[in-house]
Design a protein around this nucleic acid. Structure first.
Lengths: 214, 214
DNA sequence: AGTAGTTATAGTCAGATTGACTAGAACTAA
DNA sequence: TTAGTTCTAGTCAATCTGACTATAACTACT
């Protein structure tokens, strides 16, 4: 379950996108589904998630965390399947050069059709968790590059939470978090006053003892 | 992974306790471990957790939620094991009549020895999650009976968070939550002014679409 | 060159929340 | 009757939040 920011077709403002793969076998042949695959005997759960991510979409995530183990009896019509789902955030540079093909395509998170299995429910849950963690923790920065403006951070929040935030108040809060470091560089090229660039100095969301579930 | 409140031996104030079972086979024969067992083909994950809970300790939980799926390669020295761990809260009435025997015993959560497998780490994580959810959500009431005083709620928080809280300020906050309902009964029998009894009117922590992970 | 348009950034102000504290109320035990 | 206990309501200052104002610094256009 992978999230990335991409500019919306119309407004150009960043929006949440999700890569899906097309089912090439029954059940649900032809429908879109979350990327995934089996767990082998010689890899940890997180390693398996990384590997499946790499194999199906070619993406390297900047954040990876276990979402939930789904184990209802009728998730697949043909057999009993337990899915230990992970969710990942990838930076826009990564997302731009991701494989896209006949059977792998990006979709807007808020405009998905009906997917295979219970994958709509899984995505709903992942979205809920993403919004939740964003409100508390410092997770938004894993959707951005190394340097960013405070307006870009705000756009991430606005895209995920789906509501507008007051620019001045948002600045005040972000600047108060100790993990945000001011640089002395500015982003040039806009048709307005150039904004200062900042850096995230917190931990890189991939370490194994990632106590960040809340 | 089961939590219940029991009065401490010395002070008599409520403390967190955990039931453990003794390993009767290798590996880790003779050591204490979390209750658990295999998943069958005809039960959901939550059902399997309930059943294992019932079979090993005889307890019926008032709250049950998935904790995490542990799948490291070397969790068991003999074979690869993936454990989908659930955590439960049981009310003191339930906890009092729980089976206890040579091979099932209650331990204080803050005074555990070395357990089998990675179970110490699992308990640490569950404790972290319990503290976290308590700070936000309304989970403490699943450790209490139907009627309770505000001082009892405060004692739950103090036991779990392991620090004292100001009684007056705590009252103010709890009374402000809409899920708490004032009754017109009072708890008699103390050597002081009888405190009013309250009720929890929120949802009963067992429904399947329990969106309460944060 | 000058002016309009845009976003960046700092600051103010009222309302809500929080932590520390005070004080009276209502019971029991001596 | 009094001392001891907890219950309960309230005050007050500090902090945080949301709404808002004003200036700064750039580009684009005339």
């Amino acid at each position: 379950m992978i999230f990335a920011l991409r500019p919306s077709e119309r407004s150009g403002r960043p929006t949440l996108w999700i890569p899906l793969v097309r089912r090439i076998r029954e059940p649900f042949k032809g429908m879109w589904a979350l990327p995934g695959g089996p767990l082998t005997h010689s890899e940890s759960l997180q390693d398996a998630a990384s590997r499946n991510l790499q194999e199906t979409t070619g993406l390297a995530p900047s954040y990876l965390e276990q979402l939930y183990a789904f184990g209802g009896l009728h998730r697949s019509p043909t057999q009993r399947v337990v899915s230990i789902v992970y969710w990942a955030l990838v930076q826009p540079t990564e997302a731009a050069l991701a494989d896209e093909s006949e059977n792998v395509r990006w979709f807007r998170a808020d405009r998905l059709g009906e997917l295979a299995f219970d994958h709509n429910a899984i995505i709903d849950y992942a979205l809920w968790r993403l919004r939740n963690k964003m409100a508390y923790g410092s997770i938004a920065y894993h959707l951005l590059g190394e340097y960013f403006t405070l307006a870009q951070v705000r756009e991430v929040y606005e895209a995920v939470l789906d509501r507008e935030l007051d620019p001045a108040n948002f600045r005040r809060q972000v600047k108060a978090t100790p993990e945000i470091e001011e640089t002395d560089q500015y982003l040039q090229g806009g048709k307005h006053r150039p904004p200062r660039l900042y850096r995230f100095t917190g931990r890189p969301g991939l370490d194994p003892d990632n106590r960040s579930t809340p």
